[in-house]
Nucleic acid binder design. Sequence first.
DNA 1: GTCTATAACACGATAGAC
DNA 2: GTCTATCGTGTTATAGAC
Lengths: 236, 236
Amino acid sequence: MTSVAETGKGTRKKSASKMAVDADTKTRLIHAATALFSTKGIDGVSTRDITSAAKANSAAIGYHFGSKDNLVREVFSALAAPMNRTRLDALTQYEASVPADAQLDIEQVARCLIEPALRSASDPGHDAHALSRLLLLARTLPGPWVTNVLAEQYDEVFNRFISAFSRALPELDRETICWRYDFLVGSLLYASSYYYGQSRIARITEGKCDPADVDNVIDQLVHFAGGAMRCGAIGR
Amino acid sequence: MTSVAETGKGTRKKSASKMAVDADTKTRLIHAATALFSTKGIDGVSTRDITSAAKANSAAIGYHFGSKDNLVREVFSALAAPMNRTRLDALTQYEASVPADAQLDIEQVARCLIEPALRSASDPGHDAHALSRLLLLARTLPGPWVTNVLAEQYDEVFNRFISAFSRALPELDRETICWRYDFLVGSLLYASSYYYGQSRIARITEGKCDPADVDNVIDQLVHFAGGAMRCGAIGR
DNA sequence: GTCTATAACACGATAGAC
DNA sequence: GTCTATCGTGTTATAGAC
C-alpha cells in the first residue's frame, strides 16, 4: 500500500510520485470534457473542442480512450460515483441516528437525496455541475454510452432510498413509493436544470422565485417531496 | 391528376381542392422530422435523414423552410399549440363547472395539466408523442430554436394554471405555488420519458410499476401532485 | 506519449437546370 | 416546386514521425 504495490501495471504508470499535481493529459481531457459537456451537451462538443481546451493534440482522445464514446462513459462514471456516495453516506448517517424500531422522517430522507444534487448542480466550480445535464441527456437521448452505466451507478441508490422511504411510510405499499420516488427524481433533475441556461421560472415570476437562492430551492423541493410522499395511496 | 389540374406550378398553391389527402412535400417533411426528432433528438438527425424519409430531394428543406432550424421551430410549435389548447380547454371547462366563489379541487386542476401530456406521450401514433422529448431537449440543450418559441407556447399555460392552483389553495402564497408547479412540470416531463427508450422503472421494480398502464400512471401522478401541492408552506 | 497530417466521410446550404 | 451537383466546412479516427 505504501510503496510499490500500486505501481505494478502493464508499463509502470507514473512511478507513484505526483498524482494530479500538474494533471497529466488524460486527467486534463476528462476535466475539459466535463466542463464542455455541461454547457453544450455531448453532440454539441467535438473531440477537437475537447483536445484544444485541454491543450492536448487532436489525437489524444483516440490514444487515451479509444473513442469519444468511451470518454463520455468515463466522464459520467467519474461524476456519478462520488455524488451517489455522498447521498448514501448521508442516508446511512441519518439512519444510524434514529432508533432501530423508529420511523424515519420523510423530509430528512428526501433531503439526503436532494441536497447533494442541487448543491453541486448550482455550483459552477463543482465538477458535478455537469452531472444533472448528462442525466437529463441520458433520459432524453440515450446514446450508446448509457448502456449499463446508468444501472451500475443508480440501482443501489434506488434500492437504498426505496427502503428508507418505506421505513418512513410503513402504511404505504412499495409500488406507490416507487412511483413517487421516480416522479421526485424527475422534479430534482428538472430543478437542477435551473443552473444552466436562463431559467424560465425566474423570468416568469419576475424574480420572485430565484433559483440562485439554493438553500430555498432545496427547502422547497424537500417540502414538496414530503407532501407528495406522505399523502395516502390511491383508493381505487 | 387525370388532366391538367395538378400541373399548375408557378404560384397558385393547390387550387384549394385536396388539402392533406396525399400530403404535399412540406407536410411530409414536417411529419418525417417529427418522427425522427422524437427518436434521435435534433442534433442526431440530419437534413438528409429527413428528406429521404419524406421521400423528398435533399434541397427540399432549404426551399420550404430556409434552414433546419426554422423547420425545428415549426415542428415544435405545431406540436405544442394543440396540446396546450387541450389543456386550457380542459381547465376552462372544469372551472366553468364550479361555482364562481367555490374552491377548485387540486387533483382536478392537476389532471387538466397532466392527462393530455401523458395520454399523447404514451401513444406512438400520436404526433405529440415527440413533444415531451423536444421539451426535455429544450431544457437540456437550449438551441437557437428555443428562443421565444417556449415562451410563446407556455407562458399562458403557466399563468392560467398558477391562477387555478391559487384558487384551489387560497391559503398558500403564490411563490410557493410557482415552485411546486415547476417541480411538477419536471415530474411530468420525466414521466413522459417513460415512453421512449426502455424505462428504468419497469426494470428496477421487476414490472410492478408498469408505465404501459397509462391510466395508472396518470392517477399516480395526479395524486402525487395533489399531495405535494396541498401541504402547508414552509414555516421558516 | 505527443505531435502532424490526413484519410474518409457527413454536414447544412445553395446554385442552376428543368 | 423538384431535382442534381457541389461548395465549403466540419466531423471522428488513425497512420506514422519524433
